[in-house]
C-alpha cells in the first residue's frame, strides 16, 4: 500500500468520525469543535486531490470564519457548559432510519452508475485559472453566479447594519 493511500484513509476517517461526533455529542461547544475538525479533514482531502486553493479557502472560510462565528453565537446565546437534552428515542430512530435509507439508496445508485473516465488532459487548476473562470462571461464562466452572490452578500450586510442600528436609540 502506498503512503498516499494511508493518508487518504486517515483523512477520511477523521472527516467521518468527527462529523458523526459533531451530530452526536451533547455539548454544543464540543460539537462545534468536532464540526471544525471534520471540515479540516475535508480540506485535507482537497489537499490530497491536489486542489490546494480549494483546501486553503476551505480552511480560511471555515476555521477563520464560520467556526468562529458558530463558537461566538454559542458563547452569546447558549449556556455553553450545559448538556443539551437528548432527543426523544423515536425521533432518533426515525432520523437514523431516514439517513440510513437515503445512504443505502445513494450507494445503490453510485455502484450502479459508471462514471466516464477522463479523456482530456488535466487542465490548469492554478489560482489564476480559477480567477479567470470566476470572472469569465462566456459559456462556462462564473461571472453571473459570482455577481448574484455578491448581491446576496450586500443584502446580508445591509440587513446586519439595519439590525445593529435599531439597537442604538435604546442605549444609554
Amino acid at each position: 500500500m502506498k503512503g498516499e493511500t494511508i493518508v487518504f484513509y486517515l483523512l477520511a476517517a477523521l472527516t467521518l468520525v468527527s462529523a458523526a461526533m459533531a451530530v452526536g455529542t451533547r455539548r454544543i461547544f464540543r460539537s462545534a469543535v468536532y464540526l471544525l475538525s471534520s471540515l479540516i479533514g475535508i480540506a485535507g482531502l482537497y489537499f490530497w486531490m491536489r486542489f490546494e486553493f480549494a483546501a486553503a479557502v476551505q480552511i480560511v472560510v471555515y476555521a477563520g470564519g464560520i467556526a468562529v462565528l458558530i463558537i461566538f453565537s454559542v458563547f452569546l446565546t447558549q449556556r455553553a457548559g450545559d448538556d443539551m437534552p437528548t432527543p426523544p428515542m423515536l425521533r432518533t430512530i426515525a432520523a437514523a432510519g431516514a439517513a440510513l435509507l437515503g445512504m443505502g439508496l445513494v450507494m445503490l445508485q453510485l455502484v450502479a452508475h459508471p462514471f466516464p473516465t477522463p479523456a482530456v488532459a488535466e487542465v490548469d487548476r492554478s489560482v489564476s485559472a480559477i480567477g479567470r473562470r470566476m470572472l469569465a462571461t462566456g459559456d462556462d464562466g462564473f461571472a453571473l453566479p459570482f455577481e448574484v452572490v455578491s448581491l446576496l452578500l450586500l443584502a446580508a450586510m445591509i440587513g446586519c447594519i439595519v439590525i445593529a442600528m435599531r439597537a442604538k436609540p435604546n442605549q444609554p
Binding site: 467521518l16 451530530v23 450507494m107
Partner: peptide, 10 residues
C-alpha cells in the same frame, strides 16, 4: 454521501 446523511441525521 456519508457526510450528507450524517448532516441529515443531525
Amino acid at each position: 454521501a456519508a457526510l450528507f446523511f450524517i448532516g441529515i441525521y443531525g
